[in-house]
């Protein structure tokens, strides 16, 4: 069994996010492990709780959340990228006196150090960028 770190840099509207989701499912389906999902740049929008998708379209943030929950994945959202794009958890919302968390449960805000760590620990790192 091998482990992967996936870097997701594309918004839910991008091919990059969709490809990454399909790749992640195939990793798990092939009996391998996901060491970490690292959402970076516009990729942090995949953790947005306020996205409404048309009923006949795939809701990527919810699809990611479901994958994360059902496989207990470590899903890190880059805090610098996230704050710039309005994605905050309860702690950050309180700190900046915003209107509450805008981040889906299952995702965790953290720093780029988590990407370095994943690069050292995972067997393969793969970057999905738009």
């Amino acid at each position: 069994m091998s482990s992967f770190c996936l870097i997701i840099q594309g918004a839910p509207s991008s091919s990059a996010s969709l490809s990454a989701l399909n790749f992640a499912k195939a990793v798990i389906g092939s009996g391998h492990q996901i060491h970490r999902l690292f959402f970076f740049q516009d990729g942090v929008l995949n953790a947005c709780a306020n996205i409404v998708a048309p009923q006949d379209e795939l809701h990527l943030p919810k699809a990611w959340q479901q994958l994360i929950r059902s496989n207990a994945l470590d899903a890190v959202v880059c805090a610098t990228s996230a704050l710039k794009r309005g994605i905050v958890d309860k702690t950050e919302s309180d700190r900046y006196e915003l209107g509450g968390s805008t981040m889906l449960e299952g995702f965790t805000l953290s720093g780029l150090g988590q990407l370095v760590e994943a690069g050292l620990e995972a067997d393969r790192v793969i970057n999905f960028a738009p």
């Binding site: 970076f40 740049q41 720093g111 990407l115 690069g119």
Partner: peptide, 17 residues
């Protein structure tokens, strides 16, 4: 993109890579 690259680069360097 360029700024993100620089951020990622510097973080890796700071972590002694």
């Amino acid at each position: 993109h360029a700024a993100a690259c620089a951020d990622a680069l510097m973080t890796h360097a700071v972590f002694e890579q």
